[in-house]
Amino acid sequence: MNKERFKVPDLDEQTIRIQIDKIVSVGVKPKQSFPSYLKSMMQQVGLRHIFSDRLEITFITLLVTMMIGLMVLLPYYSEIHDMYGYIFLLSPILFLVLSIFTYVRKTQNHTYDVEMACKYNVYQIIAFRMLVFSVFSIVLNMIAVAILAIQYDEIQFMRAFLLSITALFLFSILLLFALMKRRTTVIVVSTVIGWTLGNLVLQSMNVNLYNDLLMKTPIVVNAVVLLVIVITYVWYLKKLLQFKQREGVFE
């Protein structure tokens, strides 16, 4: 029997390099950056479908009205020096309620299986919405803090604004961390209750360190802390976008 002999042609360095590049470009999927991923998701899915839920839109409108009302009414019922504490406590509330509402609706809905098998799955939509909600919350918090600062001279706008955004992102990280570790509604709800109770207890006990942190930390330090927190938030959000269902169906 004649054995077939393969003749390997002698290739020059340049041809080898060109062929390697060609193989790699075909075989290896280029890693998409976070902003370009968000952009292509936005283009392909579109805001209309990311926020397709009419009930959610009604809910958002209701919440925004309540939040602004609360911010305007709050100084009548509390001391001005407690205001920073309330800003820190309440700033993430809007974001939190919107995110949890989205999360529970999406993961508990009977459409979960169908949507999970799509190119952009439930968790990617949730992460995208959270990002939009955080931007939305920043704008709204800024307006609320500005209203307070205009009404009361004792409240410094920059300090109150930084506190409000720090609280927002700090809480977002806690929520994302809870989502990553164990994706159960109990964990998410516990995070919310933990945040609210923790802050209320610290505030009502008049803990010096807590008050000093809120009222006396230099604004530059606040800004640096905020920067670190925002970077951590984006990192966690990227992880949620790349989330893969490893453990099993939602419990």
Binding site: V45, G46, H49, R54, N109, H110, D113, E115, K119, Y120
Partner: peptide, 29 residues
Amino acid sequence: YLPQQFGYYKNYSPKQYLLYLAALKGIGK
């Protein structure tokens, strides 16, 4: 993929729901 329990939004028409799922699947309008 068609799951055993196919979930849908009651107030959607088939066209609306399929348009929504097409968007999640990355298909242009």
